[in-house]
């Protein structure tokens, strides 16, 4: 036995002569991956899946307002919601607000991201970080700012009167418009980041190639940049939508008690009447809307990516 053989032999026999266990999985590490994921999966199962499961279960218990017999388990709450005008109105209002927010946010964020991309120093520096302060500061402070700005005797009203657009203070607070304005402002940085990242991946030499082929700036934009950045726009729309439909603070304060959306309806139902069953039902409907749209848009994205 040579020297290096001896060394190897001692290396092998070190674990008390016992033969090492054969890994069940084929690759080095699949077992390790499972071990690394286990705590998170267990944690989320206990504190996310289980609570949501209980919510789903509770949504099939009858709300007290329905005066069902004890031990009822069925779709009564869903039937009630779908047959009651107030609930339908709230669902439609929620979706309408989200639609407006997505449209305006994309309209405002695309040019902004485009400018960041065009003037590369802006995109790489602190400009984007500063733009994203509101999303770090949190919606509460931002909404406080809008409450101050949009109040009946507040600065925005003074400016409107000074500009001669209106002669007497108008009520902006407690309107859907106020909610939409605040949500556009809140979601804008997220959308700008997404579109900027997508635009950054449109390689410069593609644009230069188009230019060398004689394409005018407008045609370069229309035929090269816009199509290539479309996935970024779509994912920005997904994020904007899910932020808007989940938003609570803006509708709670800027919509007042009269312009309820689904999130504020949930809090009213719990804090106002402690009706867990009905609140669960609304929550399930909210989840279905939000996840359907997100999953649909995501699968459109994946299909788009697969085609390329």
């Amino acid at each position: 036995m040579t020297e290096s053989t001896a060394k190897l032999a001692s290396a092998i026999s070190k674990p008390s002569g016992r033969r090492w266990r054969r890994r069940r999985s084929g690759t080095w590490g699949t077992g390790q991956a499972r071990l690394l994921l286990l705590p998170a999966l267990a944690f989320l199962t206990l504190f996310l899946v289980l609570p949501l499961g209980i919510t789903l279960y509770n949504s099939f218990l009858a709300s007290p307002v329905l005066a069902k017999p004890d031990g009822y388990f069925g779709a009564a709450n869903y039937v009630y919601i779908s047959g009651t005008g107030i609930y339908i109105d709230i669902i439609i209002r929620t979706l309408r607000i989200c639609a407006f927010v997505v449209i305006f946010t994309i309209l405002f964020s695309y040019p902004t991201a485009f400018i960041f991309r065009r003037y590369a120093r802006l995109g790489s520096g602190s400009a984007i970080l500063i733009l994203s302060f509101p999303m770090l500061a949190g919606p509460l402070v931002v909404v406080l700012g809008w409450m101050i700005l949009l109040a009946d005797g507040g600065p925005v009203n003074s400016w409107l009167m000074w500009l001669g657009i209106t002669s007497s203070p108008i009520e902006i607070l407690r309107s859907e418009a106020a909610i939409i304005i605040a949500l556009v402002q809140f979601t804008l940085p997220f959308a700008v980041l997404n579109i900027f990242n997508a635009l950054s991946q449109v390689e410069h030499h593609l644009i230069e190639a188009a230019r060398s082929l004689g394409a005018s700036p407008l045609r370069r934009f229309w035929h090269v940049i816009l199509p290539l950045s479309l996935p970024g726009v779509l994912s920005a729309a997904v994020i904007t939508f899910s932020l808007a439909i989940s938003s609570f603070i803006a509708p709670a304060y800027l919509g007042g008690g009269t312009k309820l959306v689904m999130t504020t309806l949930i809090s009213e139902t719990i804090l106002g009447s402690y009706d867990l069953a009905m609140a669960s039902t609304i929550a399930v409907v909210l989840l279905v809307f939000s996840l359907t749209v997100v999953i649909a848009m995501n699968s459109a994205l994946t299909r788009h990516a697969a085609r390329r």
Binding site: A40, L41, L44, F47, L48, L50, P51, L52, I54, T55, N58, S242, I245, S246, F248, T263, I266, S267, I270, L276, A279, S280, A283, L286, L287, S290, L291, V294
Partner: peptide, 22 residues
């Protein structure tokens, strides 16, 4: 699944935890 809490409405998460505790 692991990223899901980012897109789920937070008010629903809070309410679901309340239901678990209840």
């Amino acid at each position: 699944f692991i990223m899901a809490p980012l897109i789920l409405p937070q008010i629903v998460l809070g309410m679901a935890m309340l239901q678990l505790l209840t």
